[in-house]
Design a protein around this nucleic acid. Structure first.
Lengths: 119, 119
DNA sequence: ACCCATAGTATCAAAAAGGATACCGCATTG
DNA sequence: CAATGCGGTATCCTTTTTGATACTATGGGT
């Protein structure tokens, strides 16, 4: 199910670390994944509301890539008005520890960012 | 010491997860960090040899960003021929758990990548 | 005298990512 | 009847990132 044809994937061939970052590296992907992880299934517009500052085009692209990479599941209900639900696949759920590790590190060091990020 | 003025940093303002990925998101940064973590101090050319496929210009940029972000330390020896050593700062060492989490996840799922990545 | 290694830089070009804006059909709501 | 929400698409543009290539100074080895 997963495609890793993103360009950013030719370090040490088959390097699992780069493989992983290449999947979560999009500008909004982590935020999306985080919300899906903590809130479960969400509709497109729900995600949009949680990810202010992202246009719907951008959001769509990020979600489609996540889907193509096998991290999220996209369920389309053939209704009008349309309804599309996004949720994490099993593989996507597995990202939990990574996101937690990222958050922990960020929390510990974000004061340094703010301190030197005054400009 | 750390600057987070990278563009990719305006999700939920101050989101620690995005802050972290924005620092390790460069194409070669994880590989560099990984080598510095497992091998300790390395010279520029040492890194270059471990990161085949990256031009020296690209390598320089990645390293300088890592330095500006406070993750690696750059020690210049005023010699000829030049000698420059790179090592992880304390903050950089703290990335260990993240890299391990990424690698673990990648290892568990990389077979899926290969399976569907035949093209 | 010649060549190589070191740690880059400079310039140009290409590609990839992301954003702005406008638009769609259709049903519900007012 | 008009406006709104839904889940996008289409088109264009700008920014960001990465790569290719050539070049630098110097000192040591042969």
């Amino acid at each position: 199910m997963a495609k890793v044809k993103h360009p950013r994937f030719d370090c040490s061939p088959g390097c699992p670390v780069e493989a992983a970052v290449s999947l979560i590296g999009g500008k909004w992907k982590c935020v999306i994944l985080w919300h899906l992880l903590s809130e479960g299934t969400l509709r497109f517009s729900d995600i949009g509301r949680r990810v202010e500052n992202a246009t719907s085009r951008t959001l769509t692209k990020q979600l489609r890539e996540l889907e193509a990479d096998g991290l999220v599941h996209r369920e389309v209900y053939p209704q009008v008005p349309p309804k599309v639900e996004y949720s994490l696949t099993e593989m996507g759920q597995g990202l939990g520890p990574i996101l937690v590790a990222l958050r922990d590190w960020g929390d510990q060091n974000i004061d340094l960012f703010n301190a030197s990020n005054v400009a």
